[in-house]
Design a protein around this nucleic acid. Structure first.
Lengths: 227, 227
DNA sequence: GCCTCACTGTGAATAGAATCACAGTTGCAG
DNA sequence: CTGCAACTGTGATTCTATTCACAGTGAGGC
């Protein structure tokens, strides 16, 4: 298969273009696309059409094609999309084709769970280092990762080549923490703390509030019951 | 303050209406609104205008007013919104004014973290019981919650009056698991497993893929660097 | 009691995302 | 080599969400 892949890469290298603007919604679907492509590749599928592919991801074929078209042209008409090739391209687009170091802030219950969560590694992310304010935790090693004091931020982050951060700390002083992290050169923050973070200059913030998800479900279930 | 609250509840009971259709996006913002209202109440704020309120939540005042208007009329012109009253109403709308029992499926790293995560209780959710396929885990008690075998589903769920479920299992057989859970009378499923679940009949499914969030951030950070 | 001021709730306007539908292409069969 | 069948990429359209902007209203001052 490798030869075929090489051939495919030479003859069918996609016209990747750095498009003006890609919708955030499209970006969110990208990882789902990549995951399905990986599965297909594992199953030995070489080409797939938008119809079947869309079915596996759970979107309409039109939406899939539209999403892909923001990044260039991938499809080989009447053969469909080259699974391996496109998987690689997706990874390259998302910047996950090589492993990236991530720092964790807050080694509480959630933080420790994230440290032992294997899903990150599978997708090209490695939590390399942890930080906490609690002096009892500083200096200890959790799931193979050393925990530093917040004060050591500026020296430790460059050492581990960290460019992304995950926040799982207490809500108190969350914004200040985010600001410090951004100032230390981090450009993207994933926030698990149920409190709003105003994105520091030059830094993207993504909020994930798992209780909010439950609340949404609760609303839907109740609403349905009432109707 | 309690007297005032009582008075407020009597004199200013909001015109709650079961509106035809509420946008999902509105629902997602609801929990943010409620969280801010709780904070304001703790700080002793009694009334607040849409301008300041929206600022705290991070939305525009127009959007806030529009969102609220799907549920009825809350505002007291020229005094603004009654913080306590509205917080209660939000809880009632979301069905979180009384604690709800939730079942957890999969007691791996993530599952155990969720068991010890205190955030759920604070918002009216209680993980009452856990299930796992691993015979080593069945019968044990994790963070105060007993772990049952999947086979006991049908008898145990009603016992704990569970109406919502959280999935944190292996990806294998995820859809089958979701179907079984729904068949046992659960109407809402929060899925942490990075694999698509087709909602079973009469059941809502909400997917939360934390790696996907990191991938999104990675894309944004890279895109910015390229531009 | 009346006037003023500023706020809410909402119709109208805009922006944005998803879908439709088809022109253009390409592999393949004969 | 020619014609067919079916797929992609995309302009046009529809649908949905957000923002604008203002009519109507109630609290407070005088």
């Amino acid at each position: 298969m490798s030869d075929q892949v090489e051939a495919a890469m030479r003859s069918e290298a996609p016209q990747m273009r750095a498009d003006k603007h890609v919708s955030l919604q499209t970006v969110e679907r990208l990882s789902a696309y990549r995951r399905v492509l990986e599965e297909l590749d594992r199953d030995g599928v070489e080409y797939i059409h938008s119809q079947q592919f869309a079915g596996l991801v759970g979107v309409t074929p039109a939406q899939l094609r539209r999403d892909l078209s923001s990044f260039g042209t991938f499809g080989n008409i009447s053969r469909g999309y080259n699974v391996y090739q496109m998987g690689r391209t997706m990874s390259r687009i998302m910047g996950t084709d090589s492993t990236q170091s991530v720092a964790l802030f807050g080694v509480g219950d959630l933080g420790r769970a994230l440290l032992s969560y294997r899903g990150f590694e599978e997708r090209g992310f490695h939590i390399a280092v942890a930080f906490d304010v609690d002096q009892d935790k500083v200096g200890r090693v959790f799931a193979g990762r050393r925990c530093y004091a917040l004060e050591e931020l500026a020296t430790v982050l460059p050492e581990y080549e960290v460019r992304m951060a995950v926040l799982a700390s207490r809500p108190e002083g969350l914004q200040a923490l985010a600001d410090r992290v951004a100032a230390a050169g981090v450009h993207a923050i994933l926030n698990f703390v149920p409190k709003r973070v105003t994105p520091p200059e030059g830094c993207f913030v993504e909020n994930t509030d798992i209780s909010a998800k439950l609340e949404k479900l609760s609303f839907l279930a109740h609403a349905q019951a009432t109707v």
